[in-house]
Design a protein around this nucleic acid. Sequence first.
DNA 1: TCTGGGGTCCTAGGACCC
DNA 2: TCTGGGGTCCTAGGACCC
Length: 429
Amino acid sequence: MSYINYSKKKNNIALIDCNSFYVSCERLFNPKIINKPVVVLSNNDGCVISRSTEAKKIGIKMGEPYFKVKDLVKKNDVQIFSSNYALYGDISRRVMKVIKEFSDKMEIYSIDEAFISLAFVENQRLNEYGKEIRKKILKWTGIPTSIGIANTKTLSKVANYIAKKNKTGVIVLDKEKDIDEELKKFDISNIWGVGKQLSKLYMKNNIDTAYKLKNISNTWVKKNTNVLGAKTVMELRGIPCVELQTIEPKRKSCCVSRSFGKKVENIEKLKESITTHCLSAAEKIRGEDQVAKTITISIRTSPFDRHREYYSNSITIDLPIATNNSIELIKAATEGLIAIYKYGYFYQKSGITLSNLNDAGKEEFNLLAPLLETKSKSLMKAIDLTNTKYGRNSISIAQAGVSNSWKMRREHFSKIDTASFDSLPMLKI
DNA sequence: TCTGGGGTCCTAGGACCC
DNA sequence: TCTGGGGTCCTAGGACCC
């Protein structure tokens, strides 16, 4: 087709993705569960968020509420774990460090996957190079991975998906014929960037495979979707539109939210939770030396409860001076909470979002700012240092509460801490 | 009967990702 | 009984201006 331009430069992007990442992390410290069905649950032991191959085979679906699969779990002796993000974050850093050795152009895309540029590798050597990467990651961290290599990010996602499904480890898609063959078998809804709504639209128009989408007219895509839709199509054609992001941009917002272990009616308990969220969000942005100009507070009841009326509300407050001071943020958040709280509801979740983030010190000039800052800066610094040294929440403030009634459920927590000597990975090499 | 036009900026909400 | 959490980007539409 004439509108497709295949005269593209060689890019060779590899997507390295850890297999069942959270499950693999738990297995590192617990070799007994290696060939067994294993799942990791989300916060509050709410949903299934990671499954071993064995668990997938049994029919446990991604994102399913835990209580719905309890029967399957019992019948098949599935091993259950509450999520341990401190552990996963730590293992992730180790994996990324190994990957970095294979290319100087790298983008960490999520906790368990990274894109790297392999433009410097000859095409006929790509497969072999990919295998080397896998081998080294497995050897040095114990984590199994899958690797997809192609000329665009979207195609490397496709290749990775196939590598994972087929258990081949590495898939290189660099020949037009092979690509088309695979795209003909590739379901439209599995394409990176095609979610529920776009799938629906495409299906309605009889576009049910990646191949059909690749060959759709530019006019049609531009008319019926947005720029992202158009980019996806170009990328399927092998024309890079989504660049590798080699320098990590500073975050633009910071959100901390949690569901409660038990429903909450009382505003005092909500205050405790909001205060706790403010403390951790403030700590996070201080860690990146940022200040926030805006804070949003939100609360809601359970959207799944059919017997009670649903209530959800949020309020956004513009702060007079951009800050990362916990006390200031808590003050504003508490006022916001009072404004949106309604008596008589059973709340299930609360959260805060800090936005309009800027580098500290770079914020617009304000006569009052320097005064307030020096006073509180050293206090916040001291708190952060103490919490780093003696563990999270060593220093908190009274309003964060000590009662446990609303706090998280974690009944299957593995209690592994990679900082402690006792729980070094048990590697079989 | 006739009721401007064009531009920018901001925000809320939607869609998507892992 | 029990349904996660943390991000980004895009667009439509309102507010405002001349």
